[in-house]
């Protein structure tokens, strides 16, 4: 029984980690607190659904089509909306509040557009919904895929960030955006790239989720908040932290549901989250700023 709980907990956590990593990139490196993050996820869930139901393109192939689109979308949003705010904040230092307000507006726009196009109905389809035996536990193949993708993305990005020159640049911007230009780093370009990358991760999360979760256009905020909780728990801007925190939350939920009471899963999530913050105010892997 414990192995079943561990395996299904890890797989559930994989989904959380997947949606959180994009947000941690966007906040940690681009300094944008993106409240419209969940709407992006939902948008790409609908896109995957549309490709599958209208054109018969399976979500895996859909992913290949949608990811570049997501990158372009993120690139555009940052360029048009965020860049002026970032520039302005060099004087006023108000980027956090400004980005909250602006992305709050963006949230409504994306949601409103989706309402017009997709309506408010629950949407659901099945893809790869077959059981796979992992160490004696039966796991849905689509969830396993999401878990695999999370670990893969987490691993690749972690290696890229720590082992490549490009990664060093990004980390430099994350740690000291003021000083980075001194060593010849184009902060703006790096931030824009990171934001677009984050959008791409959101899209991959959306496509994965669409395979096994029912969604409506109003659900974005649920994902934003779940992602935020994971990001904060792991430490802002820390990819590995997001991965670990996501998996941890999945484990906690599954264990509470199995051994204590399914009614307390979400309470336990927030309890764990709050305790982690009280124990380490900057998250599991975060460094205290003060």
């Amino acid at each position: 029984m414990p192995t079943t709980a561990i395996v299904s907990g890890l797989v559930l956590g994989g989904t959380y980690a997947l949606i959180a990593m994009g947000l941690t990139l966007q906040y940690g490196i681009s300094r944008i607190m993106n409240l419209a993050y969940g709407e992006t996820i939902i948008f790409f869930a609908f896109a995957a659904f549309l490709l599958y139901s209208a054109f018969g393109i399976n979500p895996i192939a859909g992913l290949v089509l949608l990811l570049p689109l997501a990158f372009a979308f993120g690139y555009l949003v940052y360029g048009v909306m965020m860049q002026p705010l970032v520039r302005r904040s060099a004087r006023s230092g108000n980027l956090e509040v400004d980005s909250i307000l602006a992305t709050f507006g963006l949230l409504f726009v994306i949601q409103g557009v989706m309402l017009v196009f997709f309506g408010s109905n629950y949407t659901s389809y099945n893809y790869l919904n077959v059981g796979v035996n992992v160490l004696g536990a039966t796991i849905a193949a689509n969830r396993l895929l999401a878990f695999g993708l999370a670990v893969l993305i987490g691993g690749v990005l972690y290696l890229a960030l720590t082992r490549t020159r490009w990664g060093t640049t990004i980390r430099a911007v994350a740690v000291a955006p003021q000083s980075a230009p001194l060593v010849g780093i184009d902060v703006n370009r790096t931030a824009r790239f990171a934001f677009a990358l984050g959008t791409m991760l959101a899209a991959s999360g959306g496509v994965m989720i669409s395979m096994y979760q029912t969604f409506t256009v109003s659900m974005g905020v649920i994902f934003t908040m779940k992602a935020l909780v994971v990001v904060i728990m792991g430490g802002l801007g820390n990819l590995l932290g997001a991965l670990v925190a996501g998996l941890l939350l999945g484990l906690v939920e599954t264990f509470v549901a199995t051994y204590i009471d399914p009614g307390l899963t979400l309470a336990a999530t927030y309890l764990i989250f709050l305790s982690v913050l009280l124990w380490r105010p900057a998250g599991l892997f975060g460094k205290a700023t003060r």
């Binding site: 299904s8 559930l12 649920i222 599954t254 199995t258 009471d261 399914p262």
Partner: peptide, 16 residues
């Protein structure tokens, strides 16, 4: 058992 709205993973309850 009663579960909170917003629950997405029912595997533990199904297993039980």
């Amino acid at each position: 058992r009663t579960y909170p709205p917003g629950t997405t993973d029912f595997t533990p309850m199904i297993n039980e």
